[in-house]
Design a protein around this nucleic acid. Structure first.
Length: 449
DNA sequence: AATTCCCGCCAAAGT
DNA sequence: ACTTTGGCGGGAATT
């Protein structure tokens, strides 16, 4: 008997905590090794999945396997438990209890699930299950947003702020439109807010909650955006962290970010949205995006609904769409702009374009030269850009994306936004040269579209 | 040794 | 005040 409860809590002093990391060292002690949590009665509900076997594989006393406690497995269980066509409300406490885990874990799962459109937060302690049918819409939205952001200013380095002249697009069009459809939420926006515009504004750095900026949900979205924009399959968490974070970040920040990325990756993997693989050439472990449309149904379980588009579960009739994106601007979202610090590699874009446009995958573009000129003038056509963007959106399905041409690729014009190029050059550039090569190889190797 | 990543302390947000 | 959310990083399990 020993306690069944959670955590025995060892002693310890946690010592500092809060903020700062710095130094320190203070040993937390705590070690302890806790572990017994597994509680008696098990919960393990459905565990779906199948496979028969059951529990314990021969378990002869032993060990506590980390795998049994993984977020991925928990996610699978979560899905198995709620993915019923009529599942609806999900209570956090209930979920935690049924799945036999601490509440904290549920937050992790739920946050990433929401980022992908499978759930929505309705209220405190309450979520609503949307199902996999909500994924396509969520992804589409993410992709759109990602592309839009792409033309924004770079923003690297944490200090510095260029006032930016970012063209704020936002023109709000929507204004009340029909039902706001709550397909998913999108309250997350990143960037350090800055709404300034006023020439003088003292600018108070909104010390605001960076809390949200670092949220798992946002991280998840950005991580996914990476896959959606640059269709480079295989991205290592390391690279992702570097991209999503500035480039020269403190080692500790990077480490933390990578930890989070691991968490996210595990959940997304269990959802079959990504898969762990080896980086093409290098044997580095990395993840590959499995489109959601990519029915890869191995022997996973549950089906939910066929991946058909616009599945949208019953419930109201959202339907519609598909022809034009509606883009909802959301409720009271405070900051209405996204500045983005998502730095992307130009190479990725090239590839994306290529594949979207011609699919010839000949890969012969010449992006060698980065004309400084390109990074210079511009802005003459904000409108043009706007129009193009609009168009982009229209053809979304076709993916006839076209920004300002700058580089020609066998017939197709590919171009980057100056700022974009600047950003690329700024940093991650060097680091990505290799990556580009890999992508090239990859491209070449890919047989026709 | 390096990588993966679970656990849960405890501080921000929310009520 | 209490409760709900959820960063964050130690350090254990795995590789």
């Amino acid at each position: 008997m020993d306690a069944a409860a959670p955590a025995p809590a060892p002693a310890a002093g946690p010592s500092f905590s809060g903020a700062e990391s710095s130094a320190a060292a203070a040993q937390p002690s705590t070690t302890g090794a806790q572990q017994p949590p597994v509680d008696p009665q098990a919960h393990v509900p459905v565990q779906g999945a199948g496979s028969g076997s059951g529990v314990a594989r021969g378990c002869r006393h032993h060990a506590y396997s980390r795998k049994q406690k993984s977020l991925g497995l928990l996610c699978s269980n979560f899905v198995a438990l709620y993915d019923r066509e009529d599942a609806e409300v999900i209570g956090l406490d209930d979920a935690a209890k049924r799945l036999g885990v601490e509440r904290r874990r549920i937050y992790d799962i739920v946050n990433v699930l929401e980022s992908v459109g499978i759930l929505v937060r309705r209220a405190k302690n309450r979520y609503t299950w949307l199902g996999f049918g909500g994924v396509p819409a969520a992804l589409k939205d993410l992709k759109e947003r990602a592309l839009r952001e792409m033309s924004g200013s770079p923003v690297l380095l944490p200090m510095e702020d260029s006032s930016t002249a970012n063209l704020s697009d936002d023109e709000d069009d929507d204004k009340l439109g029909d039902v706001d459809e709550d397909a998913e939420s999108e309250k997350l926006s990143q960037s350090v807010d800055n709404t300034s515009d006023k020439p003088d504004a003292p600018s108070c750095r909104l010390r605001s909650d960076h809390r949200k900026e670092k949220s798992l949900g946002l991280l998840t979205q950005n991580f996914v955006k990476l896959f959606l924009t640059m269709e480079v399959e295989t991205i290592s968490l390391d690279e992702a962290a570097k991209l999503l974070l500035g480039e020269g970040q403190a080692e500790s920040n990077m480490r933390t970010k990578v930890r989070r990325l691991y968490d996210i990756a595990n959940v997304l993997s269990s959802l079959n949205l990504i898969e762990k693989t080896q980086q093409a050439d290098t044997r580095k472990p990395a993840f590959r995006w499995l489109g959601q449309e990519k029915r890869k149904q191995e022997n996973n379980v549950m089906v939910a609904l066929p991946p058909s588009r616009k599945a949208m579960p019953n419930k109201r009739a959202f339907g519609t769409d598909l022809t034009n994106i509606d883009n909802k601007r959301s409720k009271l979202d405070s900051t209405a702009e996204n500045k983005v610090k998502l730095v992307q590699g130009a190479g990725n874009i090239v590839k994306t374009f290529e594949r979207q446009l011609g699919q010839e995958k000949r890969s012969d573009f010449v992006y060698g030269p980065f004309h400084p000129a390109s990074a210079k003038k511009q802005e003459t056509d904000d409108q043009t850009v706007k129009q193009q963007e609009r168009k982009t959106i229209q053809d979304w399905e076709n993916l006839a994306v076209s920004f300002r041409p700058q580089y020609q690729n066998q017939g197709n014009w590919i171009e980057f936004t100056p700022l974009f190029v600047a950003a690329a050059l700024n940093d991650l550039f060097g680091h990505y040269v290799d990556a580009w090569k890999s992508w090239y190889l990859d491209l070449t190797r890919e047989t026709r579209s």
